[in-house]
Design a protein around this nucleic acid. Structure first.
Lengths: 67, 67
DNA sequence: AAATAATTATCGAAAAACAATAAAAAAATA
DNA sequence: TATTTTTTTATTGTTTTTCGATAATTATTT
């Protein structure tokens, strides 16, 4: 019962590094890392939006729900 | 290019009212309404978590991405 | 029409994103 | 293995936003 942020799968598919994603999304690599490692407790839709745009995917591809 | 929150579909499937969802999730109907009508600019994973739990669905069922 | 439900609107407090930065750790590469 | 690059962790401060509480308005249902 937890939302899991998983960006790694899409990063691999797009052959993109975390640093590149951070740059294209417009957040610092440090903050992207917080998201990637599930340290974030919330997310702005604008950020989720940009991540989906850059990775060309849907929120469901990045957010998992595990019981 | 925007994240769309769509709870109505799942509410209909579960035959649940907004008020009931709010109560079970543990937020006020007013704040749930803000989420439902796409007025929220961010969401806590704990809230998304609870919504998914109560509606027995995944984040992707609630969050849409539209170009 | 009356009652119920949902939305909108404020206000304030608490929580958290995010930037900026530096340091540490991990991974990749020569 | 040594070096470079990348990623993660940590800290501080500012800004943003959630969320509760509440009341009023609007919509829906009975």
């Amino acid at each position: 019962m937890a939302i899991i942020v998983n960006v790694d799968v899409m990063l691999a598919k797009r052959k993109m590094s975390s640093g590149e994603l951070a740059e294209k999304v417009g957040i610092t690599p440090a903050n992207l890392s917080i998201l990637k490692t599930n340290k974030a407790k919330a997310i702005r839709f604008s950020t989720l939006d940009k991540i989906c745009e850059v990775l060309d995917c849907k929120p469901g591809d990045i957010l998992d729900y595990q019981k």
